[in-house]
Amino acid sequence: MRFRSLAEMGVLSLWATMGVAYAAPRFTVGNVPSYYQGSFGTASHISIFYDASYLQFRNRSWRLKLMVPYLSVSGLPRGAQLTGGGVARRTGTTQTRSASGLGDIWLSAHYTVYQGSGLLPAVVPYTKVKFGTASVTNGLGTGRNDYEVGMGLDEIIGTRIFPFAHLGYRFVGNPVGGNLRNIWTYDVGSSFIATSRNIFTAMFSGSGSEQPGYAGPADVILAWNYNVTRAGSGFQLYADKGLSNGSANYGVGLGAQVVF
């Protein structure tokens, strides 16, 4: 389960409406608290609270985003570490610990090289950097940076349906003795505008496993956006169901954003 990407989930539906309706520059400030439970491929029952605050700028071509999360975890096996939104460096120990603090900060940039026309989707290459700001001592991170490059395809069907697909390759920062490997990341789904205020999104998201010998995360996500203003200020609610041993059993999130 990539709980970092789920923190961005509420923005996907927002992009679908704003990317079409507004060419003028826009700033968004948001906060998305979320909660996950599962084994994540370990013998422990792990609970994670992930509270992500973000600042985003977008215009017709660019979307730049800085995300700063607070992280609290319980049931994490001693010696295990969180990384990139999952669990790595799993160990066989039954001893667990709890910890809280600053998570890994993410900076991303998306650039639309082709706006799309008719049956041809918009083409949006992107790059992301995960700064290793989370505590290594407490197991909240690896202390190493990750770098991801990828490509997104965003389509418009009529005026209400917005399919999307993204494929990326992440260069994983490998701490000493970590034996972590680079991974592919992917998601595919669609947003649907039910009314001017209500937007629904369904998405399948996954990646390879950073630690050899374990299953990578795979999740189905359902989200609801409610727009209070025409610009896109409003609320998001989403639910996650893990489909693999590397995912959480379930996750839920409720967030809000202000667009100006």
Rank of each mutant, 00 (worst) to 15 (best):
A7V: 02
R78A: 02
A43C: 00
P69T: 10
A256G: 15
R2S: 12
P25N: 08
T201R: 10
G116Y: 00
L14R: 04
A80K: 04
F3R: 07
A43D: 13
Y226W: 13
D146R: 04
S247E: 01
G178T: 08
K65A: 06
R2N: 14
I157Q: 07
A134H: 02
Y250M: 03
L153Q: 06
L76C: 09
R144G: 05
G85E: 05
G246D: 02
A165I: 12
S244E: 06
W184F: 15
G168Q: 11
A202P: 04
Y35P: 05
I157V: 13
G75L: 08
V259Q: 07
F40N: 00
K65H: 05
G208I: 01
N179Y: 13
D219W: 03
L254R: 03
L82K: 10
I193F: 10
Y111A: 00
R181K: 14
S108Q: 12
I221A: 13
T96S: 11
P217D: 03
L140F: 10
L254Y: 03
A239L: 00
D240W: 01
L120Q: 07
F40W: 11
S61M: 11
H110T: 04
V29M: 12
G139C: 08
N145A: 13
P77L: 09
A256K: 04
L14Q: 14
R78F: 00
A231T: 13
V228E: 09
A223Y: 07
V29T: 06
V136K: 09
A223M: 09
F192W: 15
K241I: 02
M18K: 07
S47N: 15
V188C: 05
N179W: 07
S5R: 11
S233W: 09
G143K: 11
V220W: 12
H166P: 00
G19A: 05
V188D: 06
R181L: 00
A88S: 14
A24C: 02
V228K: 10
G141H: 05
A194N: 01
S108Y: 06
N182I: 07
W184K: 04
V259Y: 00
S39A: 15
W224C: 03
A215E: 11
A218Q: 14
T137R: 14
T96Y: 10
I183D: 03
I221F: 03
G173R: 08
V176I: 14
T83Q: 10
S196A: 11
G216H: 10
F260V: 08
V11R: 14
Y147V: 11
D154P: 02
E210Q: 12
M203A: 02
D219H: 05
G189L: 08
G79H: 09
V136C: 05
S47I: 05
S190W: 10
D104K: 07
H166R: 15
G168V: 08
S47E: 13
M203V: 01
L71G: 06
I48C: 05
W224F: 11
G178N: 08
Y50N: 12
A239M: 04
R97N: 02
Y238H: 14
Y169D: 07
V113W: 07
I48W: 08
T42N: 09
A122L: 04
T96M: 08
S196Y: 02
Y147Q: 08
V172M: 05
A21Q: 14
Q115D: 10
Y36K: 00
L153S: 04
L237C: 05
G30K: 06
F40Q: 03
Y70T: 04
D146V: 02
L71Q: 14
R97I: 00
